[in-house]
């Protein structure tokens, strides 16, 4: 059954029904309740997944924790709604969650149904190489022409996607992530093309074995989302995220970024605000 279609239909039915009662003061509601209801997934590392101790964790979860910390001074005051990717928009529309942070790509279509916060990450495709392999970086891969084989997860657009960056490369498609990485390990492929976040997370888990070719393309913006119509709540979440990336909560944001993506962020420049540069 086409899950997306069914959900879209359900959603259309919801839109036709009278809007969910809303008094327009979500911030007060959440503060009075004493905890944040955060919608996120549980099956996509490093974004949102169960760690070995059976706790939800990941970069998305940390963004929710940042908001909870701002609300209650305690990042643990969260009730999680573990939702599938398809449930992100319906759960916001029906008010089942206060906030969704679930690697949600910002698109104009979605922006008509939910209200996006400011972005907290920019996703893109990157190339993973073996440390000490024949090709040192993106330039070398490009110069390699059709001698270079790129492993990629099977997808209708996979070939086109790889050829955007490496027009002459040979593309081998694989059914699953582990097979793709195996192709790289065994030398059947010189590079693996995958999401930057997945690539970084893989490098964090296997230190010293892999290399990022240093080229990213196919940009996608990830933002949290709220139910439309409550500017106060949206402003609040925006402020929290913004100060996480540029202000007092920068240590929280950057520690999380380094934990999941292995990169130490440069502290925002002091003096003239970075936003206007």
């Amino acid at each position: 059954m086409n899950m997306k279609l069914v959900l879209a239909t359900t959603f259309a039915a919801l839109m036709a029904a009278p809007a969910v009662a809303q008094d327009g003061d979500k911030l007060k509601e959440v503060l009075d309740r004493g905890y944040l209801i955060l919608g996120s997934g549980s099956t996509n590392p490093p974004w949102h997944f169960m760690d070995g101790d059976n706790q939800l964790t990941g970069f998305d979860i940390d963004m929710g924790r940042l908001v909870a910390k701002a609300l209650f001074g305690d990042p643990d005051k969260i009730e999680y709604v573990q939702q599938s990717g398809d449930a992100r928009i319906p759960n916001l529309a029906t008010g089942k969650v206060d906030l969704t942070c679930q690697f949600m790509t910002v698109t104009a279509e979605r922006a008509q149904q939910v209200e996006f916060t400011i972005p907290y990450y920019r996703e893109g495709v990157g190339l993973l190489l073996m440390e000490g392999g024949d090709y040192a970086d993106y330039e070398a891969l490009k110069a390699g022409g059709s001698d270079v084989t790129v492993a990629v997860l099977q997808n209708v657009y996979a070939e086109e996607m790889v050829h955007t960056a490496l027009p002459e490369a040979t593309v081998d498609q694989y059914d699953s992530v582990d097979l793709m990485y195996q192709a790289l390990n065994s030398g059947r492929a010189e590079a693996a093309a995958t999401d930057q976040s997945a690539l970084r997370w893989f490098m964090v888990q296997n230190p010293g074995r892999y290399l990022d070719a240093g080229y990213g393309w196919n940009p996608q913006t990830y933002a949290c989302a709220v139910q439309p119509g409550d500017q106060r709540w949206l402003n609040f979440v925006n402020t929290v995220l913004h100060e996480g990336m540029t202000g007092v909560e920068f240590p929280f944001y950057s520690a999380s970024f380094e934990k999941w993506f292995g990169t130490e962020l440069e502290s925002p420049q002091i003096g003239f605000p970075v936003e206007y540069k």
Partner: peptide
């Protein structure tokens, strides 16, 4: 029920798979 976020046995299994890749 996993689709609406009930962590029953299949979703719990998928959570383990997502961490371990042992699908």
């Amino acid at each position: 029920l996993s689709i609406i976020g009930v962590v029953e046995f299949l979703l719990a299994t998928q959570q383990v798979i997502s961490r371990t890749y042992l699908s």
